[in-house]
């Protein structure tokens, strides 16, 4: 167990409400090495937060077991808590005392984490300066903005200098500049000081940039584990063609029939009808042959473009997982849809 910071074996959590059973985390087995920056990626409600809460002993699993720094989350919860810095996800910044100042909040939690006063003072001072909160340190947290609260929560998780950090969406709610700074800092914590970070996000770009390894979780199950490079390679296997027609919705059926009859087209991924536009995305066996064939098949329609497109995050997940992920929104940058206009 020595080389691993976090090990989970068949960790399972089931929530019951009335007769309904929701399996939030479904037999998750993971091994995270010491000094690894590990990303847990998944849509909202995938089980990321439930999984991390079990690791920090706030939730008792229904099945399975996990060890953090070699300590069992079931049998030695206090030892686990000593070694972990946990930052609660969700913006809004609950998890702090709104009627205490930022400084008072940090000082209080430092004590609960057994950090001696002088050390705590020094760390709080430097870290507040680092996240540019030093001038607001003595204001009540209720007067902070969302971004300021997120920064405060991050400092709170770091105060006792834990070897293992479990961070739930730590950059959500931060402005671009601060988010960049925080990312650099986290990366350096791993590189220079050998800390282990388990990091959850639904921002593909962020995870890809920061993490050594990524696990993709959906509906409580790990559906893929690998390096960002492996993910990218997998994703690049998907060949997508996007078709844009200047037609209205009532011709859709005929268009789809014509496209799906082609042998180069594997599957229709999505169809969208805008005011006077139809956009269809299909996966194909080969770009070079598919594009002219599709254009040919649609002769007679007002074609705006037929072009090669990069897969969206949802499509990438679809490929990796072999299951359709609903409610998944492509998030901004990265493997977005920049193949759309040429």
């Amino acid at each position: 167990m020595g080389e691993y910071a976090i090990v989970s074996e068949n960790l399972t959590k089931i929530f019951r409400s009335g007769k309904r059973k929701i399996v939030a985390v479904d037999h998750v087995s993971l091994k995270i090495k010491r000094g690894e920056f590990f990303g847990l990626l998944g849509p909202n409600g995938a089980g990321k937060t439930t999984f991390t809460k079990m690791l920090v002993t706030l939730l008792i699993p229904d099945e399975g077991e996990a060890w953090v720094d070699g300590f069992s989350i079931l049998k030695e919860p206090i030892e686990v808590r000593k070694r972990v810095g946990w930052m609660m996800g969700e913006t809004g910044g609950r998890a702090l005392y709104w009627r205490l100042s930022g400084y008072d909040n940090l000082m209080f939690f430092a004590k609960l984490h057994n950090v001696p006063r002088d050390v705590a003072e020094q760390r709080i001072k430097v870290l507040l300066r680092f996240v540019e909160l030093e001038n607001d340190a003595h204001k009540l947290v209720m007067n902070y903005s969302t971004g300021m609260r997120v920064k405060l929560m991050l400092i709170r998780a770091l105060l006792h200098n834990p070897d293992i950090l479990i961070l739930d969406e730590p950059t959500l709610g931060l402005d671009v500049e601060s988010a960049r700074k925080v990312r650099t800092f986290l990366r350096r914590l791993v590189d220079d000081l050998g800390k282990t970070i388990l990091f959850t996000s639904h921002n593909m770009y962020e995870v890809e940039m920061l993490c050594d390894r990524i696990a993709i979780i959906n509906r409580g199950r790990i559906i893929f584990i690998g390096t960002p490079r492996e993910i990218r390679e997998k994703v690049e296997e998907i060949k997508i063609v996007e078709i844009q027609l200047a037609e209205n919705g009532n011709v859709l059926d005929d268009v789809l029939r014509r496209i799906t009859s082609l042998s180069v087209v594997n599957e229709v991924l999505s169809k969208e009808i805008l005011e006077r536009n139809i956009i269809i995305r299909v996966s194909v066996t080969d770009h070079a042959t598919a594009i002219p064939e599709i254009a040919n098949a649609l002769r007679g329609y007002n074609i705006e473009s037929v072009h090669r497109a990069l897969p969206t995050l949802e499509e990438a997940f679809l490929k990796l997982a072999g299951v359709k992920i609903f409610s998944m929104k492509p998030s901004g940058v990265g493997v977005g849809r920049y193949g759309r206009r040429r």
């Binding site: 000082m107 209080f108 004590k111 609960l112 057994n114 950090v115 001696p116 006063r117 050390v119 020094q122 760390r123 430097v126 870290l127 300066r129 680092f130 540019e132 770091l158 200098n161 700074k181 650099t184 800092f185 350096r188 914590l189 220079d192 000081l193 800390k195």
Partner: peptide, 28 residues
């Protein structure tokens, strides 16, 4: 302020124990 300075904070490991009564007092 640079990332370096912030990192500096975490190079030293302090393994202390805040006394129980100090925690109770802080909580009060």
């Amino acid at each position: 302020m640079s990332v370096e300075e912030a990192l500096e904070m975490f190079k030293s490991k302090v393994s202390g124990q805040v006394p129980f009564r100090e925690k109770v007092l802080a909580s009060m």
